[in-house]
């Protein structure tokens, strides 16, 4: 077991493994998205108070979940990277950041397009929206920090520290609707109570959420391959790989 882990934590092996996994996750994400959209637009019923406007939920919630989850994964890799100095962990967190930022942006955008017709405002400064905006800024800040530091190792470490410090924001986002009074409604799905959604609505949202997971995995693995090549270009295996291409 531990031997297998060591094997795959070597960038050379992981490069190949990631290459094999990308199409699987990519195509699964595509198919799940189609199923999810079919449920979202053709099976899920109209909502009793929000009418058709609630259909934004099928992308808003998966995007928001993903933006928080990717951040936690980045925090995990950063902690591992700082503790064990493993090369691959920092590469993973660099590969995840742009996708996390995209989902954070999309959760804000779709939220605005949902808030305007339902609440009557594109944006309000309540605790949930503000902490979600901070998450987006964190992503942008982390990527800017990486871009600003030329020395890769120092950039990795500085980025990892910022990621870990910022991780405190994720539980704040999640619990903001409980801790403070907000305009944003509470969670429809949680560990402590039965979901407060009709089952087809719930299924549509869950399928879209899994699709977002698979998409993120596919994109991050694809991106990490580029990062691996770049960082390992002095090694024999990359030289061989490049020679084989032409």
């Amino acid at each position: 077991m531990s031997i297998a882990w060591f094997k795959y934590s070597s960038p050379a092996t992981f490069y190949g493994l990631a290459g094999k996994l990308v199409p699987w996750f990519g195509w699964s994400a595509g198919i799940l998205t189609l199923i999810g959209l079919y449920i979202a637009f053709f099976l899920a019923p109209t909502d009793f108070q929000q009418g058709e406007a609630y259909r934004v939920i099928f992308i808003h919630v998966p995007a928001a979940w993903m933006s928080m989850f990717i951040y936690m994964v980045m925090a995990f890799w950063s902690a591992i990277g700082l503790a064990w100095n493993t090369r691959l962990s920092f590469m993973m967190s660099r590969a995840l950041a742009p996708t996390g930022a995209l989902f954070a942006f999309l959760s804000l955008w779709t939220g605005a397009f949902w808030g305007k017709p339902m609440w009557g405002a594109w944006w309000v400064w309540d605790a949930r929206l503000t902490s979600a905006l901070i998450l987006f800024f964190l992503y942008v800040g982390i990527m800017a920090l990486w871009a600003a530091i030329d020395d890769r190792r120092r950039g990795d470490k500085a980025g990892a520290l910022l990621i870990l410090v910022g991780a405190i924001n994720v539980p704040i986002i999640y619990f903001s609707v409980k801790w403070w009074n907000t305009l944003h409604q509470g969670a429809s799905i949680s560990m402590t109570k039965a979901p407060s959604m009709a089952s087809l609505m719930l299924w549509g949202m869950l399928v879209m959420a899994i699709a977002a997971w698979f998409y993120s995995i596919a994109v991050a693995l694809y991106r990490v391959r580029g990062i691996i090549l770049e960082r390992e270009r002095q090694t024999e295996w990359v030289k061989k790989l490049l020679e084989a291409r032409s």
């Binding site: 019923p45 109209t46 909502d47 009793f48 108070q49 929000q50 609630y54 939920i57 339902m118 609440w119 009557g120 405002a121 309000v124 305009l183 409604q185 509470g186 969670a187 429809s188 407060s196 959604m197 009709a198 609505m201």
Partner: peptide
């Protein structure tokens, strides 16, 4: 100067709500 609607986290078809 501004009035916003705050809705809850329940989603269901009208028949179910009824």
């Amino acid at each position: 100067t501004q009035v916003l609607a705050k809705h809850d986290e329940n989603y269901m078809p009208p028949e179910a709500a009824q």
